[in-house]
Design a protein around this nucleic acid. Structure first.
Lengths: 119, 119
DNA sequence: CATGCATATAGGTGCCTGTCAATATAGACG
DNA sequence: CGTCTATATTGACAGGCACCTATATGCATG
């Protein structure tokens, strides 16, 4: 059971759509985008995503992430899996440690879709 | 029971935070922002928000919204309430009809927070 | 090989949520 | 006032989700 099937590529999913306020989203588009937002729509996962995305070096070790929360290790692992299954982060195992990186452009694409301030 | 208590002002909530990838989000910040994403993290509500935000004239009548979905009227009403409680849309009743408008800047703020492509 | 450490998976539990049918509210109009 | 129309509320139910404990996996090292 590979848990790493690339369910959706958020970059591609989002790139196909103009901003929400430009024109009505089609039902199929909404069905593809909503899961990405759902993956972010949890305080813990939002902080995890922010920690991963803002970390200098472009990656974070899981061991550093678990320490940042008052939650059990399996719970953090679960949330990371949700972010990974949504295509928002990449995993790389090196030795005993696992490192997470933001998927390039996934957040930027979502930001553009939701709407950015006038250029 | 007024359902219209301004739970959170998304514009203010989001304006206080730099983009996710700029620095780690604090726990309290994440707790405030996650509900906004949650409100959008449903295919129906995402389309509703897009319909409201993209409509020429700046507002949409509920009667036009219910027709766009294969769902019962109470279900649409429920979803609109969720968007309203999150502070993403405004309501105005005129006669028998109710019109919804996007809250100015709420989507733009969220977009900036999530991350926009490099200027 | 045995032990230890880092991470993931499995399974269970209580709460949240999307949907519907039924009903309420409230404005317009004869 | 009675009726019709537009929208909201209520209550119920099925499915989903966040969290935990317990266990598995997999790498490293003595």
């Amino acid at each position: 059971m590979s848990n790493s099937l690339p369910v959706l590529d958020p970059v591609r999913v989002v790139a196909c759509c103009p901003p929400l306020s430009a024109q009505p989203l089609s039902a199929p588009q909404a069905e593809q985008i909503a899961p990405l937002l759902k993956a972010l729509a949890d305080p813990v996962r939002l902080r995890l995503m922010s920690l991963v995305a803002s970390h200098t070096g472009g990656e974070v070790c899981v061991c550093d992430l678990t320490e940042a929360f008052d939650l059990t290790q399996p719970t953090i692992s679960h949330h990371l899996k949700v972010l990974h299954d949504a295509g928002l982060v990449e995993r790389e195992k090196r030795g005993v440690w696992v490192y997470y990186r933001p998927r390039t452009g996934s957040l930027a694409g979502l930001g553009t879709l939701i709407g950015c301030p006038p250029a």
